Computed example of a mutant assay.
Amino acid sequence: MLRLAVSSMFFHEYPVDEIFSSVEEAGLSGVEFWVETPHYWLRGHPLHELKAAVRAHPLLAPITLHAPVLDLNPCSINPRVAAASQQYAVEAVELAGAVGAAVVTVHPGRRTARRPPSRYDYEHFETYLARLRQAAEGIGVKVAVENMEPKVNSLLCTPEEMREVLDVNPWLWLTLDVAHAMAVSEGEVFRYIEACGDRIANVHLSVASNGRRHLSVAGNREACAFVRALENAGYCGPLTLEIEDQSFARPLSLEEKVMVLREERRYVARCLS
Rank of each mutant, 00 (worst) to 15 (best):
Y14L: 14
C157W: 05
V168S: 14
F10H: 01
S29C: 13
S154T: 12
T240Q: 03
R114S: 11
N78R: 13
V16G: 02
Y128V: 11
T105S: 10
V184R: 13
S8V: 12
V141I: 14
A130S: 15
A102C: 04
L4G: 02
A223N: 08
L72N: 06
L72E: 12
G100D: 12
S8W: 11
E149D: 07
L59Y: 07
E137D: 08
A26S: 15
V268N: 00
L254H: 06
S21E: 14
Y120V: 13
T112H: 04
A83V: 10
F11T: 14
R163V: 13
F190N: 02
E18W: 04
L176K: 00
E264F: 00
L239F: 10
P238Q: 12
Y128R: 05
E126T: 09
M259V: 11
Y267A: 07
V141N: 02
G187P: 08
T175V: 08
W173F: 11
P46Q: 11
W171K: 04
L176T: 01
C271M: 05
P116N: 12
R3M: 06
P46L: 13
L155P: 00
V31Q: 04
L172D: 08
R110D: 10
R133A: 14
V268H: 00
V227T: 10
G237R: 01
